[in-house]
């Protein structure tokens, strides 16, 4: 414990001696973490949005005019069984009434039409937890049932979300590690400056019999402290994004309800950012001091 305190004391003294270098290292880590936090949260939320889409998905199965009501009811039961959800037969007349009601005054004209242009349909709500991909598969299966004219399951919207999710996944898998690695390398270069500035001290320590571990430990503690500071700054930045930039973004852009900038300010993401900052600082120092002592 006394030994650890000694290294902490040495580390703090080293940080006091070179505040600019440690500040730059901390800022580098903070910016990288802020970027990673925003990109990572976006990727996770887009994925969650896609996965939850199935919860609200409704598949409309349009029927040919030849399908009798009894056959349609049978088809609805088949559809419910297939999707493990619920299905309701909607006659052509009901469909017209609903559309007219939805259009309000303008819809009154629909009631005057000599012939109903709308087909009868079966509206299917798949079981809770059905993913977008599963909805697509179910829609294809329903399309193969006899008497089915067409199936609508909001494909355009699902395609958009799928694209966004895929992009978020690619960004998450490639950009995030690159940002973090870049930050570690940059911070390592900055820390190396601090080590270089203290090369005379290291030389003297080695002359009086210091082991590599003795030389290395204060630098590792320094790196961890600089990383912790970077993590705290990054967490502060994320908090600011969540509480100040997020609402402005929501007001300016039609964000889906599932994209919640406020989620960035939760305790778990903020703690993760602080932890990641400390780990990055430690890694940067380990790289630099390791190379110096080699």
């Amino acid at each position: 414990m006394t030994r650890l305190l000694y290294f902490v004391k040495q580390a703090l003294s080293g940080m006091r001696a070179a505040p600019f270098v440690h500040g730059v290292a901390a800022l580098t880590i903070a910016v990288a973490l802020l970027l990673s936090g925003v990109v990572g949260a976006l990727a996770l939320q887009a994925r969650a949005l896609l996965e939850q889409w199935g919860l609200r998905a409704e598949i409309t199965v349009y029927l040919t005019p030849q399908v009798a009501p009894a056959e349609a009811e049978y088809l609805a039961r088949q559809a419910a069984e297939l999707t493990s959800g619920t299905a309701r037969y909607v006659t052509a007349h009901e469909a017209l009434q609903e559309l007219a009601a939805a259009l309000g005054e303008e819809g009154e004209a629909l009631r005057e039409l000599p012939e109903n242009p709308l087909p009868a349909s079966v509206r299917v709500v798949p079981a809770v937890g059905t993913t977008a991909a599963e909805v697509e598969v179910l829609a294809r299966a329903l399309g193969k049932l006899p008497g089915v004219l067409d199936v609508d399951y909001g494909r355009a919207w699902i395609d958009r979300i799928t694209g966004l999710s895929r992009a978020a996944g690619v960004i998450g898998l490639t950009l995030l590690p690159l940002i973090l690695l870049g930050a570690a390398v940059l911070a390592a270069s900055v820390v190396r400056l601090a080590i270089h500035a203290r090369s005379a001290e290291i030389e003297i320590q080695r002359l009086v019999g210091a082991t590599n571990a003795f030389v290395r430990l204060p630098f590792l503690v320094e790196g961890a402290f600089a990383g912790l500071l970077g993590g705290l700054l990054g967490a502060g930045g994320l908090f600011a994004v969540a509480w100040y930039v997020g609402p402005a973004l929501e007001a300016a852009l039609p964000l889906p309800a599932e994209l919640q900038p406020a989620a960035l300010a939760g305790p778990v993401p903020l703690l993760l950012v602080v932890g990641a900052g400390t780990a990055l600082g430690l890694l940067a120092s380990a790289i630099s001091v390791g190379r110096h002592l080699r």
């Binding site: 001696a17 005379a200 001290e201 030389e203 003297i204 320590q205 080695r206 002359l207 009086v208 019999g209 210091a210 082991t211 590599n212 003795f214």
Partner: peptide, 29 residues
């Protein structure tokens, strides 16, 4: 390092750490 703990070294240019006190320089060993 363990060999060097048994060898004291003195240089012409002293090789002292200017930002440490006299006590701290000596204590380093």
């Amino acid at each position: 390092p363990f060999l060097r703990r048994n060898i004291g070294v003195v240089f012409q240019d002293f090789k002292l750490l200017p930002n440490r006190t006299v006590f701290s320089n000596v204590a380093l060993t």
